[in-house]
């Protein structure tokens, strides 16, 4: 294309760093990751940036482009014609080097979520209408951009109190699974910290997979938690009828 792009890339490590400017020859359809790879191959071989598939399937290359959390492989350079494109690492996670951050906290949280607990072993009888609802959550590629933008984790140091949007989606995926027999509401109300979310929807805005995190996962979960822990009428009715809280079906468990 002849034109040249200007990038300002944050370089540094936990002790500090600064933005370094690079110039990259433009090409049709170029994405930010293409530009960074050009820099890496020709100007700064030790520029640290995480990427795997370069097709928006794996969710490795999350970073902040001009202040917005984005996948580098899906952000087109021609969206920023005439601007210097600033690329910074995700701010919520500790820096390792350059654009690479330490996201291990997320993997710790993942372990806290109990796995699917089917009421009977597969093959499951399940209609598409029921599958569709949870399949939306299965689209998640774990890029952690939602975790990055979530102000509870970003500004309020909420890592001890809230699992973050990614894991609300994960819990919703099990909680709304038609065959799951486990009761996940106590986890949500307590350790997972669903109440810390104040439904401000930044996670939905940044999600590259267009999962409607707040509307379809978090709010329905909040409503379920309200059924159990906040709704005085429901609580009273449960007391009177002596029914235990939890899924209505009796799980007939069998492990495989």
């Amino acid at each position: 294309m002849g034109e040249e792009f200007r990038l300002s890339v944050w370089r540094g490590d936990p002790s500090g760093g600064q933005e370094v400017e690079y110039r990259v020859p433009g090409e049709t359809g170029m994405v930010v990751l293409d530009a960074l790879q050009y820099i890496q191959h020709n100007q700064a071989p030790d520029l640290a940036v995480r990427w795997n598939c370069k097709a928006a399937h794996c969710g490795s290359c999350g970073a902040e482009v001009n202040g917005q959390p984005k996948l580098l492989c899906k952000t087109r350079m021609d969206d920023y014609v005439g601007e210097t494109v600033s690329v910074k690492p995700m701010q919520t996670f500790p820096i390792i080097k350059d654009l690479v951050t330490d996201v291990s906290w997320n993997y710790q949280v993942a372990k806290e979520i109990p796995p699917l607990d089917p009421m009977y072993p597969a093959p499951f009888q399940m209609q598409q209408v029921d599958a569709t609802r949870v399949q939306e959550f299965h689209r998640c590629i774990e890029c952690f951009l939602c975790q990055d933008t979530c102000h509870v984790l970003r500004n309020h140091e909420g890592q001890q109190q809230y699992f973050g949007p990614r894991f609300m989606v994960k819990i919703a995926e099990y909680e709304m699974h038609p065959i799951d027999g486990a009761d996940r509401l106590p986890l949500l109300a307590d350790q997972a910290g669903l109440g810390m979310c104040n439904v401000t929807k930044c996670c939905t805005e940044v999600c590259p997979q267009h999962i409607r995190i707040t509307d379809n996962a978090i709010i329905p979960l909040k409503e379920r938690v309200a059924d159990r822990y906040y709704d005085p009428v429901k609580i009273l009715l449960r007391r009177l009828s002596g029914k235990k809280a939890g899924p209505t079906q009796t799980p007939s468990r069998s492990s495989t």
Binding site: V152, R154, N155, E157, G158, C197, T200
Partner: peptide, 26 residues
């Protein structure tokens, strides 16, 4: 109103001073 009045958060990915006393809707 959480965004507009409480500035929790003022904008997505905005850099804000850490405020650990936030308790959400708990």
């Amino acid at each position: 109103y959480y965004r507009g009045f409480f500035w929790d958060p003022p904008g997505c990915a905005a850099a804000d001073k850490p405020r650990p006393r936030y308790s959400g809707e708990t």
